[in-house]
Amino acid sequence: MNLFRLAGDMTHLVSVVVLLLKIHTIKSCAGVSLKTQELYALVFAARYLDLFVHFVSLYNTVMKLVFLASSFTIVWYMRRHKIVRRTYDKEHDTFRHHFIVLPCLVLGLLLNEKFTFREVMWAFSIYLEAVAILPQLVLLQRTRNIDNLTAQYVFFLGAYRVLYIFNWIYRYFTEPHFVHWISWIAGIVQTLLYGDFFYYYILSWKNNVKLELPA
């Protein structure tokens, strides 16, 4: 495992910890999109179907379990926890997330590395992950006061995607036959979606002012 990959996984982990910290300790999910969180829970459920079939390493198994458990925990908090759910900004979290699941499933059926159940679900999860951040970005645009933890959550999530691209470039040059169009193209699309956010995040950080995204 190269350093980019490890750093990517760690920023992904940090993003989840930041979000859980906000929800669990402050008992607030203000500014967090439930739609995005539900999509991530679906992404991990579809991708990690191989958890008990295909063993890679202890690291891999533990990380998969962490991402599965944390994504479903966050959804549970936002939907069921009696204090947290009251802080959910339902009025502004209006992205029609169900409508992007079906196209991703169709795409997974058409474009996959092998037409088997697990490979189709894997491709589906890759396509869905690429667009899963959209409801969150839309909600941020509509949020007047974006708190630091929410902004940091999205920043670390975006950093994870950028680092994965560096990881692929590194692997392309160091491993023979390492060509994976599906995850590369989907991964680049996913990273580009963060472009605008990164621009305004860095600007607010440089000028030491609160983050605000133009609508």
């Binding site: 996984d9 490979e119 894997w122 990881n167 994976h180």
Partner: peptide, 10 residues
């Protein structure tokens, strides 16, 4: 089996 070594990523 082109995808095998990719499935080691999260």
């Amino acid at each position: 089996n082109s995808g095998s070594n990719l499935k080691d990523e999260l």
